[in-house]
């Protein structure tokens, strides 16, 4: 499935946070959105996923969902958003409970997702018993349980330490290779963007406008080697040039709480 954004602007009261965004999210790509703090990245993702109210028809979805898809657009949240009173398997199963499906199939789906995320042995654990990385694995498993056509990931690794981030990124890419689910991935982290993205959307500081869309242009499997790293360093410098000045100004702005 694909997403199309045309002329999207968004205000919180008098505050314009997104301005005239035009964007296509193509089938099977990972589109990474970066930009300075407060530029409206998460708001954009919320509008794409229908959880931030937006009156217009600026966002449209096209195409047929894959077989077994129960929620075409599914989220992975920055803060994991797990129910602390539910076990790992019940958190994953939560999103299937209101779907009409045989209990056996529901159980199989949950088990499959837990297996894919390496969570089977932790199925009875409560979220508080897990590390941050394992909690986000539950968050990803929950999103995968609905077999989404489009995954929206809102800074999914930003609450984790650097090592866990690397591990989880590898796991996410391994998973992604199987289904090649279309994904929009919001992050602050340029290295995440370079590791994951097909294209990187760079937003300006508030109000967020599209500054540029940079194609990474190197297959993901070639990004780890020395030649790939040299290539990515150039893309990194280009991205950094695009956001550096904006990020510096955004950092010095007074936050209007």
């Amino acid at each position: 499935m694909e997403l199309f954004v045309r002329g999207l602007s968004h205000r919180y009261g008098d505050l314009l946070v997104l301005d005239s965004i035009d964007l296509d999210v193509r089938e099977g790509e990972i589109l990474v959105v970066i930009g300075p703090s407060g530029c409206g990245k998460s708001t954009l993702l919320g509008i794409l996923g229908g959880i931030v109210p937006h009156g217009g028809e600026a966002v449209r979805i096209a195409g047929e969902p894959p077989p077994g898809c129960l929620n075409p657009v599914s989220f992975v949240f920055q803060d994991f958003s797990l129910l602390p009173w539910r076990s790992v398997e019940d958190n994953v199963g939560l999103v299937l409970e209101h779907q009409r499906m045989p209990t056996g199939e529901r159980r199989e789906r949950v088990e499959d997702c837990l297996r894919r995320m390496g969570l089977l042995e932790f199925r009875k654990a409560l979220p508080k018993q897990l590390s941050g990385g394992m909690r986000q694995r539950v968050g990803i498993a929950r999103a995968l349980a609905t077999r989404p056509a489009i995954l929206l990931l809102d800074e999914p690794l930003s609450a984790l330490d650097a090592q866990t981030r690397d591990l989880l990124m590898e796991d996410f890419l391994d998973l992604w290779k199987r289904d090649r689910t279309t994904a929009v991935y919001v992050t602050h982290n340029l290295n995440e963007a370079l590791r994951l993205a097909d294209r990187v959307v760079v937003l300006t500081r508030r109000p967020g406008r599209i500054r540029d869309i940079v194609k990474v242009g190197l297959p993901r499997e070639d990004r780890a080697g020395a030649a790939g790293q040299a290539f990515l360093a150039e893309v990194h410098d280009r991205l950094w040039e695009l956001i550096k000045a904006e990020a510096r100004i955004a950092d010095r702005e007074i936050v209007d709480a």
Partner: peptide
């Protein structure tokens, strides 16, 4: 609120959000 938004993002019915979240 993030837990409620999570439920809504997975199309949980209103009563389910109330009962389970």
């Amino acid at each position: 609120r993030n837990l409620i938004r999570m439920g809504q993002s997975f199309n949980m019915p209103w009563l389910d959000v109330l009962r389970k979240v």
